[in-house]
Simulated scan of single mutants.
Amino acid sequence: MFVSNLLRSFIVTTRNKSLKSGAEQLYITKSPLSRRIKILEERLGCNLFLRGRDGVDLTHEGKELYDAISRYYDELTLLENHFMNKFTPANKPARSSHGYSISIEHCLHDCLSNLTHSQLRVISQLIYRDFNNEITQELLSGELDIIISNKELQYDKSEIAIASYKTATINIVKPKIKPLSQKSIIIPATLLNILDRTDINWRQELKKNLEDIDEAEVIITPEIKNHLSSIERGEVIGLISSQSLKPTDCKLNNIILCPLVINQHSVKIEIKIYFLKKRERIIEEFISVLVSSWFFVKE
């Protein structure tokens, strides 16, 4: 195995924000997962998680570790699955025949985390990575059943089908009490990548939504929830997807969420789902589950 159980446990727990959900994804119980995390923390000499009633959050050291290794983890996981499939005997399936092998664009992790966690029973393999080349061969090889991206990827139109949907709304996080000054806008790096790929000048349009701001510095951060107290005090304003910040995360009473509105419409994140045309009928069953559970708007 290319990825150690300790590292896999750390990544899965981080992305689920819960030891219980992480254990379910790894097909183990909560106790051995906790032991793995404890061993990793002892080897590194620092705490990686803050444990609370509602789940776990990364410490500063945990965030630093996750940001440094998450992309490499996804790439190693993809290679691991590739070679396991390649060298596994034909009479022994390389992965479960039940469910779909799905790869999601790395920057969509926060936006689609609720969706993927709610559909774990029909997902046999879940990989987060970046796509920069033609994806036809990856789908034809059978390594992946579905690719989800917010980019227009290159593919063979005779072999590959595509469905486009709009999903999570982009929200402005701001204080309830009108602040005296707001000089900075905080935005997660993943959401910045998504916005920069749109055709809109979102920075200019954002100013129209915020009458108090003429010029504002954009600050990139891995996680906006660490800055909620600054937002509450009116020092900064944040941008976040509606799926990244749950109501239970907003424990401060003086923060409100409002959609980013452009041309009288709230801005939603568009995703594209790629799959083989010959499997269209089967894949559409899976997509219908996503649509019904997540209220996607088809393009």
Rank of each mutant, 00 (worst) to 15 (best):
N171A: 03
I213W: 00
D57M: 07
L6T: 06
P247C: 11
E232Q: 15
L44P: 02
F87H: 09
K246Q: 14
L245R: 00
G52Q: 10
Q125L: 12
R36G: 01
K246F: 07
E211I: 11
E152H: 13
I240P: 01
L120P: 00
G22W: 00
L206E: 06
T167S: 15
H265L: 05
E299K: 11
L252W: 10
S164V: 07
H60S: 15
G142N: 11
A90Y: 11
T136A: 03
T29D: 11
Q182S: 11
D214T: 09
E64C: 07
K157T: 13
S96Y: 06
G22R: 11
W202I: 02
K38V: 11
I256V: 14
L26D: 09
F131R: 01
R8K: 15
I135H: 05
D156F: 10
I69W: 08
V267H: 05
L239H: 06
V122C: 08
S118G: 04
P247G: 06
I213S: 06
I160D: 06
A68N: 10
V3Y: 07
F295Y: 04
M84K: 15
L7M: 13
L65Y: 09
I219Y: 03
S158R: 14
V12E: 15
I283L: 01
C258I: 13
N226W: 02
A216T: 05
K20Y: 15
T13D: 12
Y165G: 01
N133K: 14
P222A: 08
I127S: 03
I162A: 08
I269Y: 00
L195T: 02
L180D: 12
R51G: 03
D67K: 06
T136R: 10
V297F: 07
I104N: 04
Y100P: 04
I148D: 02
E41H: 07
A90L: 07
L257D: 13
L252S: 08
I287G: 04
A23T: 10
Q119V: 03
S244T: 14
I200A: 10
E299V: 11
L276I: 03
I283M: 01
R8T: 12
R197Y: 02
N47C: 02
D145M: 07
K278V: 14
G62Y: 00
E223D: 09
I28Y: 03
V236M: 13
I231A: 00
C258S: 14
D199Q: 08
V218Y: 14
S293V: 15
E235T: 05
W294S: 12
W294V: 01
T198K: 10
V56E: 01
E61I: 10
I269W: 00
L206I: 12
V173E: 08
E270N: 09
L180E: 13
K207V: 03
T29G: 08
L33Y: 00
H117E: 04
R279T: 13
I262P: 02
A23D: 07
R95E: 13
K268L: 05
N201Q: 09
I255T: 01
S164E: 15
V218C: 05
K246C: 02
L260A: 07
E223G: 01
V173W: 00
K246Y: 02
L40T: 10
L180C: 04
T198A: 03
D214K: 12
F83Q: 12
